[in-house]
Every structure is written in structure tokens, then in C-alpha cells.
Design a protein around this nucleic acid. Structure first.
Lengths: 124, 124
DNA sequence: GCAACTGTATTACTTGACAAATACACCTCG
DNA sequence: CGAGGTGTATTTGTCAAGTAATACAGTTGC
């Protein structure tokens, strides 16, 4: 998988890496057990400090996306089970549910907006 | 309306104020045209600098929640029209739609989670 | 007009976030 | 065992975010 970063985008480098690796795993470009390039290899190819790469990896490890092995490169972890993924989605949706209430919008309207976004993305 | 802040909560003071005022407006405790206590009054009662209060008010003003009047306290603005509120919800839902894809979850599962959250909150 | 209020522009200070430099511990293979 | 790789703990430096001090401009009521 090719990882790229734009240090002028205003988005922290580590966040760009997290996003790309997450996307790689979700899209099937990266499969369980597959090795991620080392912090030093990416540091050389992307021109950023290894600790910056390491930060991205640490976050992905905390989230269960990557697995760390002492002295060896990180590997992609088996995808969390469905229940865990649903729980993660719920965490992401909680503040939005609060927002729906703040905006005084009805449940069905909110559902419609969400569905439209989800289906638009599927079509792309 | 009573506003409170906890300076040790780790949540920035201005953000606590923004959240409380938003909630006050959404819940009907604060109505359109109603005056918000002045930056100096809140500064005295909450023990924070007026500029911190002002920052909260500025954000709420940008978001169309409050209206500023030179030499006079802020007032609650008439609620944005429905289309604007729906647009705000869509902005909040966009990253979540991305997350659904990353988690490789189906639209219907995501909708179910969202609906459950919205209806749980309604019951409280 | 002035006192007493209003909000905030500007500047300064403190704390948090981000990124990098350095050195340590671990692993694999010849 | 040692060379060549692995990740990261720790510290440092820079920049961004959060907060405060000060003074200015605007409003209202007496």
C-alpha cells in the first residue's frame, strides 16, 4: 500500500497516516496479518520523523487496527468482530444524537439525512 | 438560566459555555430575543476572564445562535430555519458516514444504531 | 454630559498538541 | 555473536489553543 502525506495540508501528519491505514484496512487493500512498512522505512520515504509514524501506529494499535510486535513491524490485526465495530459506530454517533436534539430535529428527518449520506457514498 | 463551569474538567471553559447555551436554546429554557448575561456579569459569577466568555459568545454568534448588539448584551437569535438545521446535521454526520464505511458496516445496521440512540434520548 | 453598563481588539502568558532528535531494548538471520 | 533491522521512551523545540489583562468604542438612563 502507498502512503502519502502532505505536510502543508494543515492536517497533522500522524492523522493523515491513521486515516489512510484505516481506509486501507476497510477497503481490503490491507488484510489481516499483513505487515505495515516500518517506522524508519516510512520516515525515509515520507520525509518525517519516525516518532511521528510511531504516533499514528500507536493510535491504530489502541483502536485495535494494528498489532505491535517487539523488534518487528506492525501487522494488520484481524478485523474486530461485528459487535465491537457496532460499538465504535455508536460512540461516533452519540454526539450527533445530542446535536439532533439541540437542533430540535425529528428522528425521521435525521435518519433520512444519514441514509442519504450513506447511500451517496456507496454510489461513489 | 444558570450557567456553570468546572475549570478542572479538562474541557475548555469557553466550550462548556457554548454547550450549555446551545442546550438552553434547544431545550426551550432560552427563547428568541432573550438576553444572555453580560460577559462581565458572567465573569464575576463564574470567576473567569470576560474574554473567555466573549470567545464562547463569538462562536455562538458565528453559528447563528446568539446575536451581538454594540453596547448591549447578546440575545438569543430566532432559531435557524429548518433547512439550515438540516445542513448543520449533515455536516455532523459526514465524518460518521465515513466511519461506517471504514468499519465495513451496512447502511441498515448504521441506521438502526442511530435510531436507537435517538429514541433512547427521547425517552429520557 | 456623564456614570455605569455593553462587547471586544490587542497583547501577553500559559498550557497543550505536534513533530523531531536521541538512545534504548527487542528480533532475525548469517 | 554481531549486523541490521524492529518499535518507542524520553526529552526538546515549535506552534496552536486557551485564558487573561488592558484599553477602546458603543449604549442607556439620569
Amino acid at each position: 500500500m502507498i502512503l502519502v502525506v502532505d505536510t502543508h495540508s494543515g492536517i497533522p501528519v500522524y492523522r493523515q497516516l491513521v486515516d489512510q491505514i484505516r481506509f486501507g484496512v476497510a477497503s481490503g487493500l490491507l488484510t489481516a496479518g499483513e505487515e505495515i512498512p516500518s517506522t524508519r522505512a516510512l520516515s525515509a520515504s515520507l520525509g518525517v520523523n519516525p516518532m511521528t509514524i510511531s504516533k499514528a501506529f500507536s493510535l491504530l494499535e489502541e483502536d485495535g487496527v494494528l498489532e505491535r510486535r517487539p523488534g518487528r513491524p506492525h501487522v494488520v490485526r484481524a478485523r474486530p468482530d461485528r459487535a465491537t465495530r457496532l460499538e465504535q459506530l455508536e460512540q461516533a454517533l452519540r454526539p450527533v444524537a445530542t446535536k439532533v436534539r439541540q437542533l430540535d430535529l425529528e428522528t425521521d428527518a435525521a435518519i433520512t439525512v444519514f441514509r442519504r449520506l450513506l447511500e451517496n457514498r456507496k454510489k461513489r
